[in-house]
Write a protein that binds this DNA or RNA. Sequence first.
DNA 1: CCCCGCGCATGACAAATGTCAGCACCGGGC
DNA 2: GCCCGGTGCTGACATTTGTCATGCGCGGGG
Lengths: 204, 204
Amino acid sequence: MSAPVRLLLADDEHLIRGALAALLSLEDDLLVVAEAASGPEALAMARAHAPDVAVLDLQMPGADGVKVATSLRTELPGCRVLIVTGHGRPGHLKRALAAGVRGFVPKTVSAQRLAEIIRTVHAGNRYVDPELAADAISAGDSPLTAREAEVLELAADGAPVAEIAERAALSPGTVRNYLSSAVTKLGAENRHAAVRLARERGWV
Amino acid sequence: MSAPVRLLLADDEHLIRGALAALLSLEDDLLVVAEAASGPEALAMARAHAPDVAVLDLQMPGADGVKVATSLRTELPGCRVLIVTGHGRPGHLKRALAAGVRGFVPKTVSAQRLAEIIRTVHAGNRYVDPELAADAISAGDSPLTAREAEVLELAADGAPVAEIAERAALSPGTVRNYLSSAVTKLGAENRHAAVRLARERGWV
DNA sequence: CCCCGCGCATGACAAATGTCAGCACCGGGC
DNA sequence: GCCCGGTGCTGACATTTGTCATGCGCGGGG
């Protein structure tokens, strides 16, 4: 019998985090050593406790799960990262894998499954939810170039072109060109519908 | 010693629902008699099991917590409804209370608190998270008229004026007038920023 | 080496949008 | 009875946005 798997749990919803901690603690090969309610807190906890596996919510205040994973990758290479998410957007999965995340599961799985997946990840294997993986594959790669995506993101809150141009340090005309090409590529009616589509596919 | 409080749990995230069920079952005066993963399923379960308290997530597929609460109010008047939510928008709280909901709490509370609140609600009292209540009061009432809100909602997915006009059975000019007045009232830069603001305040 | 795609820009034009004024009808409150 | 606010429409105008052509420099792949 080997030592228990030491876990870090990070989720901004106390209810979920606490419940999860309680359930996972029922498994005798799992041990929750730290909890966090935000991205920065998760990083601090990870540094302090050096867990074997970090279970991170995708959406947290401060820094999202992928950002935390990126930092952990260099600071604690031995710590495997498992992302759990409510609404899995295809693009998030891709970015997460690029950040060295070892597992990616929706919150629709049961606690038993999660415990198994934690063991899988701890053993050095990867686990990606099959449905999310299928979505990601069928959604394909983002057709947007880096600048197009950047400009589209700045357009997300409904700002006028002039403001986007200023914030991106680009000419207003250039901004309109990028927006236009992004809208065309996404087959949207206008930039706002394009933002919505790109968000749905996780491309922004 | 009275009979235990019979609970219905509804949340689309299996992980949370299961964890919650396990934690609440630790309290010996609480009994989870049914679970559901969607709005319609929650209604069906409520009809079948007639719980004392229904704990509903605000955002569920099919029908949201407030819609379910509205239906339950007439079908099962004896069933108290408690809404839990991840991101509490001020307007949601108002609509929930109008639908006869007895409790409204964010998912940031601990399971112990939740158990207490369930008892409070079951006893016939109301409970609203103080922070959410403060937000709702400071956000105030929606300054939008019924039509303004309706048109703004149709504009939410970035549809052009012509499409909004058709879907609302209004003249395009009228649609633009309503949008303009909504944008002015909300102090937004354009309709899309207005949609975002109205969403944040829970006015749409 | 040459071509192509990307980044960045300008200019011009058409279309959509935002803003304003004005008019009509209805219903509720004083 | 009168006024006011909400609803609905038109027309006119300025501004913003969307689209397209065109140009230049750069870097990577064939």
